[in-house]
Design a binder for these strands. Structure first.
Length: 704
DNA sequence: TTAGGGTTAG
């Protein structure tokens, strides 16, 4: 048999999927056993379709190893993402002086660079780059260039990546795409979009589906929905709609930019859907708080026989957490266990989160304990879960355990521990955590800054909150809103208004719905009634912010306090969204102040319907009756509280003096200094009633 | 002879 005939046979066999073993014996029979071409081809077939071990056997048996054979072996490890084994083999290749006929070529170099990128081994990668620079031909090889750019972009060195890119006089679409992807993955989203437009507009290179995926992914993070429409048009014109990854990334763009309807339509329109499409759509519903729809979709996916992966499990569990649906959550837990995903760190974290949000702390802890290895995300889920369940004191213990397990917090974990700590309100602890923030270099994180402002505000130290605020250079809308809320908490409405004024005049940031909520609440807590009403007006008419149920609740409270009960009622009637209990609650409170029994009864009726187990509202109504001496009605309400077995929720107050934390409830008589405390309280009350400026006296008493 | 770029969750 001639070599040429065997060559043809071999290629036919490759295409028809004939096994490497059969081919091997065929080659041995024909006497071409040491032909380097056949050996290389067989080696790659073994590695691809049989096993790496078989490939190694052939490799070991071959006395004359060409660079092609080494490359084939290296590539097999690379395909399996065995980066360290790839580099180890490369080391052997270099020391195999007697058997190696040629020097490593550009193909070898590109594989080695890929392994360096996979391990983020910049030092070795740079050495290889030095080797490449010495060889003109290799330096202009676009395959090598691609791997070099990838290496630098994986290591976060986009400047170096750009230098390599600029060495090429005519980079092709793949090189452009790697640059766009690099910018996108490193969070330089605007640069990714600019680079893309340079490629298309200036260089006239037509993007392919892969380029578009990276562009769309950048737009999704920028919440740039408009660009999605352009890309969608292009996709249809070019007939790219069959590329499922591309349509998935478009779906994700609409999902993240809040266009739920468009996303749902695109999902329906897609020719083919894979597990990524389903997870994206489920995640879209979760993000937009449509928990029921998300759960329905998850179950539909399972029923249609789509094989779930770890990510779709996470989305399903998030839906359960949002819906507070423990039953469905447990079902997904069982399914995850059956499919072997319960040891996956992301799935376990989602399980912890789900159980915590469904108030099942024991189950959450159980999942946490069973995790084979723990990362910072799951520690953060556990400690914030405790805080959500009113057990913030446990969060502190978890944080300490996390540190002693040598897990360093990231910015998210830091935010969670700070907010857990703010639930406790212990200033001494806040100061310790602030110290930790500075020592670990989180000081410049905007998210951490916001949490610190909130923490100090809640621990009663407004001046520390202001110090943190003033230290932040780039004051965005979130930071400004947090500071306004801090002033509000301390009854400093005027300061809150001043800061808002500064924010608007200096154009530091544009106020959003949260800013207005903080501001309205600050006005309400400081008795700045007319100012609050004006702010609401500015919000709706100047800033075109749609008032939420929370905004309306505060407005009702403000109007109610000055006796404008009819106007307050009008606001409730005009609300576009379903009226939440707290809005009626604000009206009921106002009715008590102004003795409006009729309207109070209307508010109470609605409240008893919406929130039948809240004892506070019954007590409010009975107080209204008591103040207007309607004893019969009052007794009816009191009886109904008893019959329903409603218990009053106790409010626990905590105050920190020196290094000691004192806690007490209303009418508490357990404190050792009880008599003195009540005496001071009585004096303060007298002063309040006599209209003396209390603030200065309080300063005198507490030595503030 | 061997060949470079991609989508979802945390």
């Amino acid at each position: 048999m001639k070599r040429r005939d065997l060559f043809v046979d071999l290629f036919r066999a490759c295409n028809s999927g004939k096994s490497a073993t059969q081919l091997h014996s065929q080659i041995l029979r024909t006497g071409f056993a040491y032909d380097s071409f056949f050996v290389t081809k067989l080696n790659s077939l073994y590695a691809k379709y049989t096993s790496i071990e078989e490939a190694y056997q052939l490799f070991d048996e071959t006395p004359q190893r060409t660079v092609y054979l080494w490359n084939s072996m290296l590539r097999s490890h690379c395909r399996e993402k065995q980066w360290k084994r790839t580099l180890l083999l490369f080391k052997h290749m270099l020391s195999d002086k007697f058997k190696l006929e040629q020097r490593p070529d550009n193909f070898t170099v590109s594989i080695v660079l890929k392994a360096c990128a996979g391990l983020k081994w910049l030092k070795l990668g740079k050495m290889v780059h030095g080797y490449v620079k010495k060889d003109q031909k290799m330096a202009l090889d676009m395959f090598v260039g691609a791997e070099l750019i990838e290496l630098y972009s994986e290591c976060g060195k986009m400047g170096e990546a750009l230098k390599v890119f600029q060495e090429f006089p005519k980079p092709d679409v793949v090189l452009w795409t790697i640059m766009v992807t690099g910018y996108e993955l490193n969070g330089y989203l605007e640069e990714a979009v600019t680079f893309f437009s340079r490629m298309v507009v200036k260089e006239g290179i037509s993007p392919d589906p892969v380029t578009l995926i990276s562009l769309v992914s950048a737009c999704a993070q920028l919440r740039h929905g408009m660009l999605g429409n352009c890309v969608l048009g292009f996709v249809i014109r070019r007939g790219f709609e069959a590329d499922i990854s591309l349509t998935n990334s478009l779906l994700n763009l609409y999902a993240k930019s809040g266009s739920v309807k468009i996303a749902a339509n695109l999902f329906k329109w897609m020719i083919e859907r894979d597990v990524v499409s389903w997870s994206s759509m489920i995640a879209c519903y979760v993000r937009n708080e449509a928990a029921v729809k998300a759960l329905e979709l998850f179950n539909e996916m399972i029923n249609q026989g789509v094989e779930p992966n770890a990510i779709s499990m996470v989305s399903g569990l998030q839906a359960c957490a949002l819906a507070c649906n423990l039953e469905e959550g447990k079902k997904i837990h069982d399914l995850a266990a059956k499919k072997g995903f319960d040891t996956d760190v992301s799935v376990s974290t989602a399980l912890i989160d789900m159980y915590m949000k469904c108030f099942s702390t024991d189950e959450a802890v159980d999942v946490f304990r069973k995790m084979p290895w723990k990362d910072v995300v799951c520690w953060a889920a556990l400690l914030s879960g405790y805080a959500q369940n009113g057990m913030a004191y446990m969060s502190m213990g978890v944080f300490r355990d996390m540190l002693s397990n040598e897990t360093q917090p990231d910015a998210v974990a830091m935010v969670k521990i700070l907010s857990a700590s703010s639930e406790l309100g212990i200033l001494q602890q806040a100061i310790c955590l602030h110290g930790y923030v500075i020592r670990s270099g989180f000081e410049n994180s905007a998210f951490v800054g916001v949490s610190l402002i909130e923490l100090y505000s809640k621990c009663g130290s407004l001046c520390d909150a202001v110090k943190v605020f003033e230290g932040i250079f780039d004051k965005d809308v979130v930071i400004l809103s947090a500071m306004i809320a801090g002033y509000g908490m301390h009854g400093q409405g005027r300061e809150a208004l001043k800061l808002f004024d500064w924010m608007v005049k200096s154009s530091a940031a544009s106020p959003n719905n949260v800013t207005f909520l903080s501001l309205l609440s600050a006005c309400s807590h400081s008795g700045l009634i007319q100012e609050g009403i004006n702010i609401f007006d500015i919000m709706v008419h100047e800033y075109k912010v749609d008032p939420s149920s929370e905004h309306c609740g505060i407005l009702v409270d403000l109007l109610g306090r000055i006796g404008e009960l009819d106007k307050a009622m009008d606001i409730i009637k005009q609300m576009p969204t379903p009226v939440q209990p707290h809005v009626w609650g604000a009206l009921l409170g106002a009715c008590r102040i102004h003795q409006n029994i009729e309207m109070g009864e209307v508010a109470a009726k609605n409240l008893f319907h919406l929130d039948p187990n809240h004892s506070g509202y019954y007590i409010l109504l009975s107080n209204i009756y008591a103040l207007s001496e309607k004893w019969v009605n009052m007794e009816k309400i009191r009886t109904s509280i008893r019959e329903k077995g409603l218990k009053k929720m106790f409010g626990l107050s905590v105050i920190e003096i020196g290094n000691e934390v004192h806690s007490f409830v209303a009418d508490d008589k357990f404190h050792p200094d009880c008599e003195q405390i009540y005496e001071l309280l009585r004096q303060l009350e007298m002063k309040m009633r006599s209209g003396v400026k209390l603030f200065h006296d309080a300063e005198f008493y507490f030595g503030a």
